[in-house]
């Protein structure tokens, strides 16, 4: 059973429906007892970094998720804000600590630096696949996926990055660390290629 963690941040319906569409058995819940029984975990989310952490903490989910993912090594998928929260720190509306599973920071796109480009980064952008992973099976380099975000995750360990995108500079689109896979884009909104990645997640057995 795949648990989609419901922590009050954004539309969990579409990720649950997309996982079901590709054959997953899905439970959307914030009940720690049910979360603990998950075979695989998905942390979706949209909204502000600080609110995301606050809502996880209020539901008592931070120590539980940390144990399930870092100690028990359950396969984990973070999407958009659910990827950003893995960082050590976020700088949206101030500076806040994240889950800290990945050596990274979440910072706003520097508008001056990417002059002429608007923020948020909204729409379909192509992926440069930088590292082979089972999650990308069936994807071609340059596949278009859907992004919508104003902040990005700056990863301090480049070897974790599995895909990048260009937006005036090169940014992290996806990363993998052992049993953790995370995407800045929305596979559940990325039509065929997105569904392929979710299907890959269902069959993923991290080494």
């Amino acid at each position: 059973m795949i648990v989609v963690v419901d922590y009050g941040m954004g539309n969990l319906g579409s990720i649950a429906k997309a996982l079901e569409y590709v054959g997953g058995e899905v439970l959307v819940t914030n009940d720690p007892a049910r979360v603990a029984q998950a075979d695989k975990l998905v942390l979706p989310g949209m909204g502000a970094f600080q609110d995301g952490m606050k809502h996880l903490e209020e539901r008592g989910l931070v120590p539980l998720l940390t144990d399930l993912v870092l100690n028990q090594k359950k396969p984990f998928l973070g999407i958009c804000l659910g990827m950003q929260l893995l960082a050590k720190r976020g700088f949206e509306w101030g500076e806040y600590p994240g889950l800290g599973w990945i050596d990274a920071e979440v910072v706003r796109f520097e508008v001056d630096k990417i002059k002429g480009l608007s923020v948020p980064h909204v729409g379909w952008n192509d992926l440069t696949l930088t590292r082979s992973t089972p999650l990308f099976a069936g994807l071609e380099n340059g596949a278009d996926v859907y992004f919508v975000h104003s902040y990005h995750l700056a990863c301090r360990e480049p070897k974790l990055v599995t895909a990048t995108f260009e937006y005036g500079d090169t940014f992290t689109a996806a990363l993998m660390q052992e049993n953790i896979f995370a995407t800045q884009f929305h596979p559940e909104k990325s039509q065929r290629d997105g569904l392929t990645m979710l299907k890959n997640f269902l069959s993923w057995q991290p080494q």
Partner: peptide, 28 residues
């Protein structure tokens, strides 16, 4: 539930609760 692509929805949304409700139905 069947179109896995971005969906925007509008029309008479006036409160935070209106927004929350439509997002919950699947709007992005």
């Amino acid at each position: 539930g069947e179109c896995f692509m971005p969906l925007g929805v509008g029309g008479g949304l006036r409160t935070l609760e209106d927004i929350r409700a439509i997002l919950e139905k699947g709007a992005d």
